[in-house]
Structure formats: structure tokens, C-alpha cells
């Protein structure tokens, strides 16, 4: 039909579409594209203790890439990312699987799904703080373990440790896995499962041969969220490790605090490239536009 419309009409349709998206374009241009370009440019600038100024030097990158601290930090951040991703995937998949295939009424599905999503709309900072009474030296975890006789001394590594960081990440971000996986699972044709069962497949075979392959787009979208959120994080690592653990995001935020903007910009560029490579790999497995 559209091809039969006169060209003029089509053109005005085009410009009308542009009018409709113009606010979004303006916001993204000024608060996304321009900031990224600025970061890229400033990463070649020079700085001293109290100021930064235009230049074209590679020192920021050379210093960054030659420092063993950078590599150690990336290794640490990757460790957090892989651990968080692993637990978010296992837990998120199981929760979505339960909601999609074992809860039978739609009302209950919506209610339980909302129960999972409501924390997402509350403050992350408070959700982090709320682990203190649980994990602290005299916290619930330690005192229960002592009264159960499992341990004699309170465990020191519960709060302000890498364990606490990963726990908080999983607590904050599992939701980003549950939602897309649930979404793709709800689209799986139930007759496929019946057919498989009629053909004699066991529950486990149905899971591995039908549900997991068909949930892959959701798993990929969830993974992209979890990976980028953890890779760029600076606040969870700082708070939950008690300032003891490093991460790429923390390095950037420390450089910002020291007003070393060009150094921070160079770190940010490297972080962005790393994240983009990781996303590009994951995007090979999914077409996001089909999933909405």
C-alpha cells in the first residue's frame, strides 16, 4: 500500500516522524553522544594538580595500559562480572521458569512477577545498606551460625568483602535477568511442550531441548544488562567492600575525585571499548528488535 502513495506524502510522513522523535534525539545528542565525544577528546588532554587543558598527548593511555594496577583491576572487575552473571543467570532462569511454566493462573503470574519487580523501583543504595544488619560482625548471619554451633568465631569476610560485593550485585541485578527471560518464555508455544511430552520426552529433556534454546534471546538480553551494569559499577563495589576492593568504575570515580579528568576520560574510553566488545559478542546471538 505504502508504495502507491505519492512521493510527496511519504516525505511529509518522514519529516513528521522526525518531528516526533526530535526531543529524544536532542536529549540523546546532548547528554549521550556529545558527552562520549567529549570524553574521547579530553582523554588526549593534559592536566596538572588543579587544572586540565587542551593538548594532544597519549600519556594518559600509555600510563594506563602500562600500569599493572590497571590489569589487576580489570581482572578483578571481570571476576565480579563472571560470578555475578553466573548466579544471576542460574537464579533468574529458575525464577522465570517457575513463573512461566509452573504458575497456572495469569493473575498469580502477574502478582508474583510484580513481587519480583517492585524492589527494582526502590533505592539501590538503601538495598545495599540493608545488608549491614544481616552480614555485620554481630549480624544475623553470624549470630545464627554461632547459635547453631557451625562456627565459634564470627566470620569476618561476610561484610566488606568480595563476597558481599557479589551478593549485593546478585541481589540488585537478578531482576534484569528474570524479566527478559520470563518475557521470552511466555512466548514459547505450549503445544511444543505437549508434543514433546507425547513423544516421550522427560521433563529434563524438555528443559534442555526446548525451553533453554528458545529462552536464549532473553538470556542474552539479561546477560547484556548484568554484564554492563557490573562492569561500569563503582558504588556497589565501594560500599560493599568497605573501600577495600578495586573495580574499573571505582578507578574512574577516584580519578574524578582527584580532578584528574583526562586520566579518568582515558580510563572511561578503555572501559567503553571493553564493554562494547563484550556486548558485540553477546549480540551475535540475539536480535533485540524482535524481542519487544
Amino acid at each position: 500500500m505504502q508504495s502507491q502513495q505519492p512521493a510527496k506524502n511519504l516525505n511529509s510522513g518522514q519529516s513528521f516522524s522526525w518531528l516526533l522523535v526530535s526531543p529524544t534525539i536532542l536529549i540523546l545528542a546532548f547528554f549521550l553522544v556529545l558527552p562520549l565525544l567529549t570524553i574521547a577528546i579530553v582523554s588526549f588532554w593534559d592536566y596538572n594538580e588543579w587544572n586540565f587543558f587542551p593538548a594532544f598527548i597519549f600519556d594518559n593511555y600509555v600510563y594506563l595500559l602500562e600500569s599493572p594496577v590497571t590489569w589487576a583491576t580489570y581482572l578483578k572487575t571481570l571476576k565480579f562480572t563472571v560470578l555475578t552473571w553466573f548466579f544471576c543467570t542460574i537464579i533468574g532462569f529458575t525464577v522465570a521458569f517457575f513463573l512461566a511454566f509452573h504458575v497456572r493462573s495469569l493473575t498469580w503470574q502477574i502478582a508474583l512477577f510484580l513481587a519480583c519487580t517492585i524492589p527494582f523501583w526502590t533505592s539501590n543504595i538503601i538495598r545495599m545498606i540493608s545488608w549491614i544488619p544481616f552480614l555485620g560482625r554481630n549480624g544475623i548471619a553470624n549470630s545464627s551460625l554461632i547459635s547453631l554451633g557451625v562456627i565459634d568465631e564470627p566470620l569476618e569476610w561476610l561484610l566488606f568483602s568480595d563476597f558481599a560485593v557479589v551478593l549485593a550485585f546478585v541481589h540488585l541485578y537478578t531482576l534484569f535477568m528474570v524479566v527478559p527471560v520470563f518475557n521470552t518464555m511466555m512466548r514459547i508455544d505450549k503445544t511444543l511442550i505437549e508434543a514433546a511430552r507425547d513423544a516421550g520426552a522427560s521433563g529434563f529433556q524438555i528443559l534442555t531441548n526446548i525451553i533453554i534454546p528458545l529462552s536464549r534471546p532473553g538470556l542474552m538480553i539479561g546477560s547484556i544488562f548484568v554484564v554492563t551494569l557490573v562492569m561500569g559499577d563503582f558504588i556497589t563495589v565501594r560500599f560493599m567492600s568497605g573501600g577495600q576492593s578495586a573495580s574499573v568504575g571505582r578507578v574512574i570515580s577516584n580519578e574524578i575525585a582527584l580532578l584528574q579528568y583526562p586520566a579518568a576520560a582515558a580510563s572511561a574510553v578503555i572501559l567503553l571499548i571493553t564493554v562494547l566488545i563484550m556486548i558485540a559478542i553477546m549480540l551475535r546471538f540475539v536480535d533485540i528488535r524482535k524481542e519487544l
Binding site: 547528554f31 549521550l32 556529545l34 558527552p35 562520549l36 567529549t38 570524553i39 579530553v42 554492563t228 562492569m231 561500569g232 559499577d233 563503582f234 568504575g249 574512574i252 570515580s253 574524578i256 579528568y261 579518568a264 576520560a265 572511561a268 572501559l271 567503553l272 564493554v275
Partner: peptide
């Protein structure tokens, strides 16, 4: 995109 990049870029 990692949020700190937005923060840093807009701040810059």
C-alpha cells in the same frame, strides 16, 4: 552504557 560515563561526560 556505564552510568559513570554519562556522569563524567556531562560534567566535563
Amino acid at each position: 552504557i556505564p552510568s559513570i560515563l554519562i556522569s563524567l561526560g556531562v560534567g566535563l
